[in-house]
Write a protein that binds this DNA or RNA. Sequence first.
DNA 1: CTGTTAGCGCGTTCAG
DNA 2: CTGAACGCGCTAACAG
Lengths: 338, 338
Amino acid sequence: MNKNKATIHDISKALGIDSSTVSRALNDSPRVSKKTKGKILKKAKELGYQRNSLASSLRTSKTQTIAVVLPRISRHFFARVIAGIEETAHKAGYNVIICQSLDNLEREKKIISTLISNRVDGIMISISMETTNYEHLEAYKKLDKPIVFFDRPCELPNCINVNIDNFQASFDATQHLISRGCKHIVHFSGSQKIELYRQRKAGYIAALEKNNIKINDHYIFESNLSEEDGIRAAKKILRLKNIDGLYSSNDTAAISAMKYFKSKRVRVPEDIAVVGFNNDPISAVIEPSLTTINQPALEIGKMASNLLFEQINNKTKTTKIQFRLLNSELIIRHSSKK
Amino acid sequence: MNKNKATIHDISKALGIDSSTVSRALNDSPRVSKKTKGKILKKAKELGYQRNSLASSLRTSKTQTIAVVLPRISRHFFARVIAGIEETAHKAGYNVIICQSLDNLEREKKIISTLISNRVDGIMISISMETTNYEHLEAYKKLDKPIVFFDRPCELPNCINVNIDNFQASFDATQHLISRGCKHIVHFSGSQKIELYRQRKAGYIAALEKNNIKINDHYIFESNLSEEDGIRAAKKILRLKNIDGLYSSNDTAAISAMKYFKSKRVRVPEDIAVVGFNNDPISAVIEPSLTTINQPALEIGKMASNLLFEQINNKTKTTKIQFRLLNSELIIRHSSKK
DNA sequence: CTGTTAGCGCGTTCAG
DNA sequence: CTGAACGCGCTAACAG
């Protein structure tokens, strides 16, 4: 009724029952009789009581909240990962905070700092492309709270990682192009400072070597994942006359290159094949014959959050798990704890 | 160093300065000498102190956090809105919580409930398609905290709404098709229980009437925004032989219809024109000749958050604002306060 | 099964 | 400019 929220004391006074009993009743403690519990719940509803999570969290030092930190939610892959995370989290009674780093280290640092201030119970993160040291994340770990890395692997020991087998996926993708008869395959790669792109490049090279195809450095484009880079690369490709295949290890650049090809009326399916990692609906639209290695985003999200909850509840039995999903491989890499 | 976080008391003891002074220094109060301020800040950094927002919020009853509630973050339009919101919010020193209702009322209710528990300072919401009453939101308003509606208008009085002029945009879209020579224009609409789709349908009808084109009920498809609906509608359209135009007031159904046309080898640009509301990159890829009325998503986000901050800071001078952006119209509809 | 007491970490009085 | 004391709302620990 009033502008101020009802507290347990309001309902305590209204009923002549001590506030601690009210608190217990509201938490459905077995140590309160059904009768008084009923009275309390009724009064609570009547007064429009809603628990003050801040006070509760302050007391218990548990926020029932976990955070996902990732480059951008607009990428289809990440949106799917979030869906998977929310599904498991909500079932487990946790709230999820979503944070975008925009692949910017400074932003990521700030995010982690406010997550520390807000005392979230755990963090799942796909690190920014600029992240090469992990001090900000270690500050969080020092609080004895867990971090799970997904998609982009953490290069530190003692980290839990959830991702597909990037080497194998890359190998498969390249092999697929070779099997279709490609001999001159361009590779869109990312910065070699990042383990993820080293792994993917390695898979590409391994497949070529296995098929006795010469590795040509001019065919490998290192870039960040912007649309501009995709267009720039596309232009270069059109100048390399004999290209018959393209394997891109990132979807953003691949899609923008495809757009460029279209605008230049290059007939894509006959001339160039593209293999990307995500099942973004845009890739299905851009060219139906496009070949794609999908990452099982939903499963990655579920897996990552489940591992996080295991950590939060100190079920430390996390060991190396590994299994296949669809066309790609989901790996949980885990080195011993503390 | 320790597993436990440093508090202001730790730094208070370490320095022999009272914790209240430490608190003031950390909040950059002018009532602390620069000298002691310096000492305190240094020690704070040394101990790895990070403010406990929970305690701070509990004390001040301000969380410095606002929430965005919307159907799904994966829709390009919403992702852009979020970008706009985050930009303004971070500048203003606020954190942003993103929540997906998945167009499900029960979920929306639960979200609002936990936002109340977490005492966020304000909410911006694009209501779910199932939302026809606003009790859950009124519970929040009773705490004297502001709500701003965007995209999907709230049908209650005394609400702040940020959206384009849907009637006009619809009118323009339909007029555009008519100007291109279309006489038999199909309209994809949403549930007429929702004001948004009523407005859009009204704009379509108004344009036809102005051009003396007969309104044909068979040309109007009411559906929710699923992909399945798009395909279902596409099939029906192919049966209506003389259709020469399609005006869709939602992008999801339009895009999936376009996909279907493509798969059936119907040559889209000559046979059917599509007009949608969003600047989703997917629509640019699906068919370059596609005509689109864009919603200025980024601006909507900025506008909505700015209005929210005005409310939070009790600058109640919000009056009717109205201006044009790009091809569409951005309206803030606002009826008098309290 | 219920009441009493104390304190989570911080900010804000009110004194000096 | 700084210190002492209190309380935000809730729950854990200890009584009874």
